[in-house]
Amino acid sequence: MNLDFEKNMPEIEAKIAELTKQKTTDPNAKVEDQLTDLQKQLESLKKEVYSSLTPWQTVQVARHPNRPLLRDYIAGICGEFIELHGDRYFGDDQGIIGGFATIEDRHVMIIGHQKGKTLEENVKTNFGMATPDGYRKALRLMKLAEKFKIPIVSFIDTPGAYPGADAEARGQAEAIARNLTEMSQIEVPIIVIVTGEGGSGGALGIGVGDVILMLSNSVYSVISPEGCASILWRDGSKAPEAAEALKVTADSLSKLGIIDEIIPEPLGGAHRDYEGTLRVVKQALLKHLNILRRVSERKLVERRFEKYCRIGRFKRR
């Protein structure tokens, strides 16, 4: 998928790939100068485009189909991953997955939304839109982490909770509410990281934690910009305006005090550089795992409650 604001970046990248290939097959090919030139062009273009993304452009990047997904993060960051299935009530949602995992020498419980890269995968995972079964599976795994006394790392990347008739019938609202309630009292550290789309209640349903991190091009919002535009502007095409007004970017949310840290993506976005992205995510997770391991169980819950108590801007008069 090409983003129009990336201008001719994809073409330059294609040309670089072609010349690089030429170089490897034919060591005598005189492509060195051209390559250096193209790489310079690409770098300056990346800088130009990615240092001044509008909120709506950031939404496009956050939704980019080539962005690393949860299974990419697990494969790149975790030494081991033991997937655990099922909510023990109804089924095994694929929109939220989880299991035991190691990050370096740390043992953790990973939960998170799983989108798909292909249509087939997206059918299976519902485009990362979890059903109540997914939220209940996540809660089961969090309770398990609490019992095993290991920290929880929650990866957020969803357009929202699945809006289906069956999801309503099985209590989408109750499942999310239950998670919000229980997560506030879980006696192990919870690190939340928004890697792509933080879509409303569907994101928050596994998003209550001690520290909330966001990748620099991810977004987090109470409603999709399109949804907001169609309600308040009565025109879905005003999504760019709504994205601006809703303050959905990591930068805005950091200024509002909602998130604790922005993890800078490599220039040009996570979809261009998996290795670089995984490296910074791993570093950030290890850092916060180490900070939070020193906090007592009681203090953790107390501090988490206070953290959420503080969120809100109102007047008294």
């Binding site: 999310i176 928050l204 109470v222 303050k247 509002l256 959420y308 809100g312 801007r313």
Partner: peptide
């Protein structure tokens, strides 16, 4: 919606 993510966080 007018208070954006801050409204969402009131759920938690």
């Amino acid at each position: 919606m007018h208070e954006g993510i801050i409204s969402l966080m009131q759920m938690a």
